[in-house]
Design a protein around this nucleic acid. Structure first.
Lengths: 247, 247
DNA sequence: TTAATTAGTGTAAATAAAACACTAACAAAA
DNA sequence: TTTTGTTAGTGTTTTATTTACACTAATTAA
């Protein structure tokens, strides 16, 4: 059995794009410690756990993500540490944590990661990994457990900035083959505003690493769109792995 | 006496601008554990310490910075956590740490902050706070203690990005009154490339929050330059506290 | 008086950003 | 089979931004 460090945890803010609802969602874990009524979202928290002694933080994040949600091979990035001594505010929270981990908890500093995944591909409910996981809309995510609402707001800020200055991460949220409207819609959902279709396409074209695969959508009740893919080789060659189409 | 958390530390990468040498420096702490010859910079580390139980991380960073260097009221920003289990690689390092803190150390995750200070104003040697502190040029900072070389490279990346996308932080490194050439020189030193003087000034003018104070330099053996200051009111009004002149 | 040094200024050309509306292709419904 | 609804796809003009570039001015030191 691995020994847990009682001062250190990792939390994962898992973002998923709901292309039907045109909304950005997060995957949260539902506990049952506060009464159902009137407790707001206090029973919802991000998947997270204490880290094992002698475990690398990044590995810890991957392990926790996989154990709690079954997710693998996802884009995961550390974005901040949260360490207010009163992060765990309620006695019930402390009790829950101690029962949950089976060790005495003091003050816990959490290292927060965000993950980008495709809801259609990685729906944990479909995979019946845990029946306690739920996707919720970020607009309904106020008043989460611990300081998780604060963590969410920092995560969102970071995601939006990364999406602009490091555009390639957007592709984590799309299938291998996608249409330019899918990509544009992703930006609109995450950034929260509309973009001009023609200007958007000009930028994509200039970036050069998003290329048509010569196939079209099928089965859609409208003009089928050309499918595109991410060309890693072109990306690396022109952008040294960092660049962006700076929406 | 405060109890230290044996798993958690804070390290401060303190950047200072040397305007004479036209170089960016960091403030490091010199230990004596490895033989002087052949140990490279392995005796040099960033000011840092274990955090006290029940101490906020940001407060911890300010406390540590003040205790170790005498510095106060400096710009300090958390930029990453480092948690590889083998961060403390040599037995000597572990021994040093245990002797230094007086407690048994296991694996330590460090939360890293960077600070920006004016060397002329805050020279710890002048203030005889510690005789073990030294400014070293970032170009001579390879092979530091622990994983501190890696921490430095992440800190530098972050600083450069922040300087571009959050330009106002540059003013932390300058005196209240400065010339536009000082400001430009700061950018050139930190970003490591030359900028066009006229284009630079156009951007500053457009930003609007760097204003002339109607005074000129004195005692210089060349045409004296106009002195400028940062206008906080204009900055907040136009930029909501974030903006930048995007060099 | 001269030399050395940094301060300060404008313009033209190229590039990028923004605003804007119609036709094309498909499935479903009539 | 025709019509309807829906999304795909395309260029141009205007405006703003970026880039490249070189000389005169003011001071102290020699």
């Amino acid at each position: 059995m691995h020994k847990l460090n009682p001062s250190l945890s990792v939390d994962c803010v898992i973002f998923g794009l709901d292309t039907n609802e045109q909304s950005l969602k997060i995957l949260v874990y539902e506990r049952e410690i506060f009464p159902i009524e009137g407790s707001g979202n206090k029973n919802l928290k991000f998947p997270g756990s204490l880290v094992i002694e002698d475990e690398d933080l990044d590995e810890s994040a991957y392990r926790i993500l996989n154990e709690l949600t079954g997710l693998k091979n996802v884009y995961l990035k550390q974005f901040s540490a949260f360490g207010k001594p009163d992060r765990i505010k309620f006695d019930e929270e402390r009790e829950w944590s101690e029962k949950h981990y089976g060790i005495k908890i003091n003050r816990v500093v959490t290292i927060a990661y965000y993950a980008l995944i495709r809801i259609d591909k990685h729906n944990p409910e479909q995979k019946q990994i845990k029946d306690k996981l739920r996707w919720i809309n970020i607009d309904n995510a106020s008043n989460l457990a611990f300081d998780h609402s604060h963590i969410l707001s920092v995560a969102l800020e970071t995601l939006r900035r990364d999406l602009i200055f490091q555009s390639a991460i957007s592709l984590e949220l799309l299938p291998k083959k996608f249409t330019l409207n899918h990509l544009q819609s992703l930006y609109e959902i995450i950034l929260g505003n509309k973009l001009d279709k023609r200007n958007f396409r000009k930028k994509i074209a200039k970036a050069g690493y998003i290329v048509p695969i010569g196939e079209k959508q099928t089965g859609v009740a409208h003009k089928p769109a050309m499918l595109y893919r991410f060309d890693k080789r072109k990306f690396n060659k022109n952008n040294e792995g960092i660049a962006t189409f700076f929406i």
